[in-house]
Amino acid sequence: MYEFSIDIHMSWYVYPSDLNAFEVRNGFHSYEVNLEGTFISTWLGKDKFLAPYESNILPVNGSNMWESTPYTKPLPPIVRRMLGRPCMKIKRHVSEHQDRFSQVSSKGRIVQCQDCMQMGHN
């Protein structure tokens, strides 16, 4: 019996059955592995991959040359306004840091009164 691990949580046990046939187990899961058999489906082979490219693909006219149909054009979906007050808070990306310098502050700023034009009070 051979043991190998794919993941921290999964230990698979290999039991040799023949020279090229094995049984692989993990708990209640068991799979047969035959090294002489085919490893992938024929649908994933080179022949099936190249089959669509064997014939020419004809070009298609632009939408301005399409025939018009008697059907009405579909309308866009109705935009519904959600209940409640809309959220006004800026949604920041997780990479943006929320520190004490991220907000604009008036600390250290000298204000000017709009009535008497004196500095220091408003």
Score class of each variant (00 low, 15 high):
residue 95 S to R: 08
residue 15 Y to M: 05
residue 111 V to S: 10
residue 113 C to K: 06
residue 58 L to S: 07
residue 27 G to E: 12
residue 112 Q to K: 15
residue 119 M to V: 03
residue 51 A to P: 00
residue 45 G to N: 15
residue 115 D to Y: 14
residue 14 V to M: 15
residue 110 I to C: 09
residue 98 Q to H: 09
residue 30 S to T: 14
residue 80 R to Q: 08
residue 15 Y to S: 01
residue 103 Q to S: 10
residue 63 S to K: 15
residue 89 K to I: 06
residue 35 L to E: 09
residue 80 R to H: 03
residue 100 R to W: 08
residue 117 M to V: 04
residue 110 I to E: 05
residue 76 P to G: 05
residue 60 V to R: 14
residue 80 R to V: 15
residue 83 L to C: 01
residue 17 S to Q: 12
residue 66 W to L: 11
residue 1 M to P: 01
residue 31 Y to E: 09
residue 38 T to A: 08
residue 39 F to G: 13
residue 41 S to L: 07
residue 41 S to F: 03
residue 112 Q to A: 01
residue 97 H to G: 02
residue 31 Y to S: 07
residue 105 S to H: 06
residue 29 H to G: 05
residue 66 W to R: 13
residue 18 D to G: 15
residue 8 I to Q: 14
residue 75 L to E: 14
residue 112 Q to C: 13
residue 79 V to M: 04
residue 33 V to F: 13
residue 58 L to Y: 08
residue 29 H to W: 04
residue 17 S to V: 14
residue 107 K to Y: 06
residue 50 L to Y: 12
residue 19 L to K: 12
residue 35 L to V: 09
residue 93 H to V: 00
residue 36 E to I: 09
residue 14 V to N: 01
residue 61 N to W: 04
residue 10 M to N: 14
residue 113 C to Y: 09
residue 107 K to C: 07
residue 95 S to C: 07
residue 114 Q to M: 06
residue 66 W to F: 15
residue 37 G to I: 00
residue 28 F to C: 01
residue 72 T to P: 13
residue 45 G to H: 10
